[in-house]
Nucleic acid binder design. Structure first.
Length: 119
DNA sequence: ACATTGACTCGCG
DNA sequence: GCGCGAGCCAATG
């Protein structure tokens, strides 16, 4: 077969999609973080592109992927922005001014977890 | 084949 | 906080 009739998922894309699927509920991860964990350091844009073109039927937790500063990547007020915020709030992730505190909800915050240990 | 675009990131002023 | 430039690179026109 020369070409498939539907989108082909390369191994690289698959690694990225798997990484996104692994983000725990109630936690968030940065584009660059996903890229690095999937074996593509410095390729944050690839993550955004792959995610945007991915099949919705995969039901990926795309709302858990944020920019490096904790902000939602979509323009404030846009459809994507509003839905992402709603989805995050629904699973207990606090979103203030389109932004999430990575020290509290970041997937990798474990390193700083001690600071937030309940007293 | 060249230019622009974009669910990105980082450093500098 | 804000704007800019640079690096990033596949998709799109």
């Amino acid at each position: 077969m020369a070409k498939s009739a539907h989108p082909v998922v390369s191994p690289e894309h698959a690694a990225i999609l798997r990484t996104i699927a692994a983000i725990p509920r109630g936690r968030v991860a940065r584009y660059g973080e996903i890229a690095a964990r999937a074996g593509h350091p410095r390729r944050a844009r690839l993550v955004g592109r792959v995610l945007g073109e991915s099949d919705p039927a995969l039901k990926l937790p795309w709302q858990r992927v944020l920019r490096s500063d904790g902000r939602i990547a979509f323009p404030p007020g846009s459809r994507g922005f509003l839905e992402q915020r709603a989805r995050l709030l629904e699973e207990g992730v606090m979103v203030v001014k389109g932004r999430v505190d990575l020290l509290r909800f970041g997937w990798q915050r474990d390193l700083d977890a001690e600071m937030w240990a309940p007293r």
